[in-house]
């Protein structure tokens, strides 16, 4: 009895030890962001007094200046446009391609799959100079839809890698049943495979949209026209300017404005994303 009591107390102690550790990690993970949010309401004088102090009043004009002095709104619009096109391209191209590569054995199917697996390591950042030359040769610099297609293409290897795991785990029985019912391959794909691999597709969509929304190096090279630049580029430019103009308030406000859409998408999609990842892990 006594050992039971003891071990229970020990377990409770351990639990609190673990909890304290986790809370500490949470503070490290979230404090910089929270600091960013409340500092965005500080006046520029308050910035110089104490880093941790809360703002005295709420300086909304930081936000007004952030929008006024930058191209923030057009940056957001450009980024949104690029994300939408990227997603469409990935859905239309990568899903059917993965299905064929996984389910049919044909000449070159293994080779193509291997090329995609190897291409996972060729990040767009690595080859940004030849990509720049390629886009330049095709007259596609400063072209947002073209950049979106490029983003989608750079996501293909990862998308195919993730989706192929999902598709392999779907038993052949469903397709065979559909085939007996007289379904052609395209109907099987749309009505059997796509619904069954929905968690995988959603995960791919989430990851791809995040990476297109956040991508910096390639956009930096491809979009030089300030009316076509995406949000990360706009923010980096704003940081370059404000670091010397020392309008910290406006800069922090711009960062918060950039965070808001990400937070909203994350809160909506988080469950789907993690569920999808879990399912992917479960099914191998």
């Amino acid at each position: 009895m006594k050992t039971n009591e003891q071990s229970r107390r020990q377990a409770a102690f351990m639990r609190w030890l673990v909890r304290i550790f986790m809370i500490l990690v949470t503070v490290i993970m979230l404090y910089p962001l929270i600091w960013n949010v409340y500092s965005s309401f500080k006046t520029n004088n308050e910035f110089l007094t104490n880093a941790f102090s809360l703002p005295q009043g709420i300086a909304w004009d930081n936000y007004a200046r952030a929008i006024e002095k930058s191209n923030l709104l057009s940056n957001v619009w450009n980024s949104a446009l690029i994300v939408v096109i990227t997603l469409c391209v990935i859905l239309v191209f990568a899903v059917p391609c993965t299905y064929c590569l996984v389910r049919y054995k044909f000449f070159g199917s293994k080779l193509i799959l291997n090329i995609y697996m190897a291409a996972i390591f060729i990040q767009a950042t690595f080859i940004m100079i030849p990509l720049f030359m390629q886009m330049n040769a095709l007259h596609l610099l400063n072209n947002r839809p073209a950049l979106a297609v490029l983003y989608a293409t750079m996501q293909f290897p990862f998308a195919i890698f993730l989706l192929s795991g999902f598709l392999r785990s779907i038993p052949h029985d469903y397709e065979e049943a559909a085939m007996i019912d007289g379904c052609g391959p395209s109907r099987i794909l749309l009505q059997v495979i796509v619904p069954m691999s929905k968690p995988g597709i959603v995960t791919v969509c989430m990851i791809s949209s995040m990476s297109a929304w956040n991508e910096f190096p390639v956009a930096l090279v491809m979009l030089t026209d300030s009316t076509k630049q995406t949000l990360p580029i706009g923010l980096a430019n704003l940081y370059e300017v404000q670091r010397y103009a020392t309008d910290w308030g406006a800069l922090f406000a711009a960062l918060v404005l950039a965070l808001i859409p990400t937070i909203i998408i994350f809160l909506i999609g988080q469950k789907q994303l993690i569920q999808g990842m879990n399912a992917g892990g479960l099914k191998g």
Partner: peptide
Amino acid sequence: CVLPTFLLTLTFTIIPTFR
């Protein structure tokens, strides 16, 4: 299903890498 996808990869990944 496969060719357009692979063509894009060829244009925007493989050719630039060899280039």
